[in-house]
Design a protein around this nucleic acid. Structure first.
Length: 568
RNA sequence: GGCCUUAUCGUCUAGCGGUUAGGACGGCGCCCUCUCACGGCGCAAACUCGGGUUCGAGUCCCGAUAAGGUCACCA
């Protein structure tokens, strides 16, 4: 068989250059010793999974901590999955969570192109080389042929796949091949595997440790019938020429590792280091499963933006999942930037973790409590502008009406917005406990925070009064307080009045006395305060009531008290 | 089903032959407190099950079980 002739007949790409050219074009990177080159290689489906962030963070940390390079490569070899604008989505959503690339798709870089479809020539050059060496061959099998083989194998409980005696096209004669070609039959290029499944090797995985890998014996497809490489082939070539030193990827790739090992070997490339991380799971009834794009909204990175989780909080939570000693570090260094944490690939968990939204919320609350009211205002405004309801947008920005359009947005509009900002900042300072000894931790995410402060806005104040006392008692308390309420009272004078109303209605004013003999009273001051709180805010859990009434002002406070009385 | 991987409180995990099995989230309780919170203190809560090896096993070995991954011209 004339392999050179066959290679030319099979792959007709005029751009193909001699192999040395590629080695020259993409030289070894000059980096400090120990520096790692890592990458993220998603397919452009337009959907960003939380797992993408997870693995991106791991790769990014390792690269940047070691003084290396972190780049983005787009695996667009599957036409069907490609979505317009997907790369933009990748950049934007990862950037939002603080992950930045040094080079790659839509960025500069000497090792591109970073879109696999634009790299056809290199793949073709190497496919050709393998054919010349007799290490790859054309396969004319149709889907039906393959199906038949598979059926036969499952019936006879044989290892499924295209290998050995089942690889029908592996030993086609020269005549057969050219006849098929002349007949215009479609073909793929397959690797002529040299491996033996009975041979096992131990392999060092950077996260799993010592694992055993069986040799590959599958004659895997390296070039599809449209001349585009499969993932496996593109991976070997790209990670070689982009000079990747470490591949951290999902554990779903572990089972195809033997293929990759063989591919690197036949291509004469040095194998990078690998680390296979576990996927984030969720409990669904009785069973655990991967977070699913279709079933679980929280699988989408977008979800966290829509909910208004602070990116730092999500990042922090991801880190707790990513490195087992991270939380301990965080506890000791609560104010230190996350990037100063010494990330270690060896500290990655070996088994899949359950996604814990409660824990995320806790981390989120703690993080939100670190902001000041101005920062919080900006954060919430940004969220509301994009995701809020019209009413919520109105908390921050006055609506632009017809007159504005005619006369331009004037001074009045600017002043109105400044007024809203001032009001909001007062509200937020109260809700966050700014100025107090300890911050409150009520805010989890922007969506919830904006909803939580809705009672400060008459347009969205729609209370459902749920008292724990009978109507008559509530009425007496509310009326009694409304009569003596004075906006000028300071906090303690105000509270004395609450106590007075409590006493007037038989409630205990002294907690010690109450605790000593609870049966003697219908309740205590705290119960009275709760009634007032529900009447003015519709909620039983709010920050300091006195301040709320101060912010609301006398008129609105009394209006709410009266509305509550009327509703009884 | 074959192959690979994993197995400690409800959850995330520490542990690398000798520990009262540690921490965090959540739960519960107490304290602080003029109301709601924050905070502080405390309690309950785990080594999947068998066999070995060893003076000694959560830790090493072998099985069983369970869970996850994977078996494409998808990545």
């Amino acid at each position: 068989m004339d392999w050179n002739k066959l290679a030319d007949a099979l792959i007709k790409d005029e751009n193909v250059k001699p192999l040395e050219e590629y080695e020259k074009q993409y030289p070894e990177r000059t980096l400090e010793k120990g520096a790692q080159v890592t990458r993220l290689a998603p397919s452009p489906t337009g959907f960003m999974h939380i797992g993408n962030l997870y693995v991106a963070l791991a790769n990014e940390r390792i690269a940047h901590q070691s003084g290396g390079v972190f780049y983005l490569r787009i695996e667009d070899t599957d036409e069907k999955r490609k979505v317009e604008g997907a790369v933009d989505v990748i950049h934007k959503s990862l950037k939002y969570f603080g992950v930045k690339f040094d080079e790659g798709a839509d960025l500069c870089g000497e090792y591109g192109p970073y879109y696999q479809r634009q790299r056809a020539e290199i793949y073709h050059a190497y496919a050709k080389e393998l054919i010349r060496q007799g290490l790859a061959y054309p396969c004319f099998c149709t889907e039906e042929d393959l199906e038949k083989i598979r059926e036969h194998q499952t019936e006879n409980k044989l290892l499924p796949g295209y290998y050995g005696e089942f690889a029908k096209c592996r030993d086609l004669t020269e005549e057969e091949i050219y006849a098929n070609l002349a007949a215009g039959k479609k073909y793929v290029i397959r690797l002529r595997s040299q491996g033996d499944v009975n041979v096992k090797h131990t392999f060092r995985d950077e996260v799993k440790g010592e694992i055993t890998v069986t040799e590959n014996n599958q004659d895997v497809v390296i070039l599809k019938s449209d001349g585009i490489p499969t993932y496996h082939f593109a991976h070997a070539i790209d990670d070689h020429f982009m000079r990747t030193t470490l591949v951290i990827r999902g554990e779903e790739w572990l089972s195809s590792l033997p293929i990759h090992i063989e591919l690197f070997k036949v291509l004469g490339f040095r194998l990078p280091k690998y680390g296979h991380n576990c996927s984030i799971q969720k409990i669904d009834g009785e069973t655990r499963r991967k977070l699913s794009k279709r079933k679980d909204p929280e699988a989408s990175l977008n979800y966290y933006r829509e909910q208004g989780y602070h990116p730092e909080a999500v990042r922090t939570y991801m880190m707790t999942l990513l490195n087992s000693n991270f939380e301990e570090w965080l506890l000791k260094n609560p104010e230190t930037p996350l990037d100063e944490f010494k990330y270690s690939i060896g500290k990655m968990g070996k088994s899949g973790a359950l996604f814990d939204i409660v824990k995320l919320n806790d981390i989120s609350k703690t993080y939100m409590a670190k902001l000041d009211e101005k920062e919080m205002y900006l954060f919430l405004k940004e969220w509301a502008d994009e995701f809020g309801t019209d009413t919520q947008k109105g908390y921050f920005t006055a609506p632009i009406d017809f007159e504005h359009i005619l006369n331009g947005v004037g001074e009045e509009f600017v002043q109105e917005n400044a007024k809203r900002e001032e009001y909001l900042c007062k509200v937020l300072a109260l809700c966050m406990g700014v100025g107090g000894k300890k911050r409150r931790k009520d805010f989890v995410c922007a969506k919830q925070a904006v909803e939580m402060i809705s009672y400060f806005f008459d347009e969205s104040f729609a209370p459902v009064y749920e008292y724990r006392f009978v109507k008559g008692t509530v009425r007496k308390v509310l009326q009694g307080f409304a009569e003596i309420y004075d906006e000028q009272d300071d906090n303690s004078a105000w509270f004395d009045k609450v106590k007075k109303v409590a006493g007037d209605n038989g409630f205990a004013t002294d907690m010690k006395a109450y605790k000593a003999n609870p049966e003697a009273y219908p309740g205590n001051v705290s119960d009275v305060a709760e009634m007032l709180r529900i009447a003015t805010t519709g909620l039983s859990n709010t920050p300091d009531l006195w301040t709320i009434m101060q912010i609301l002002g006398k008129e609105r406070t009394l209006a709410r008290l009266n509305a509550a009385i009327n509703a009884l």
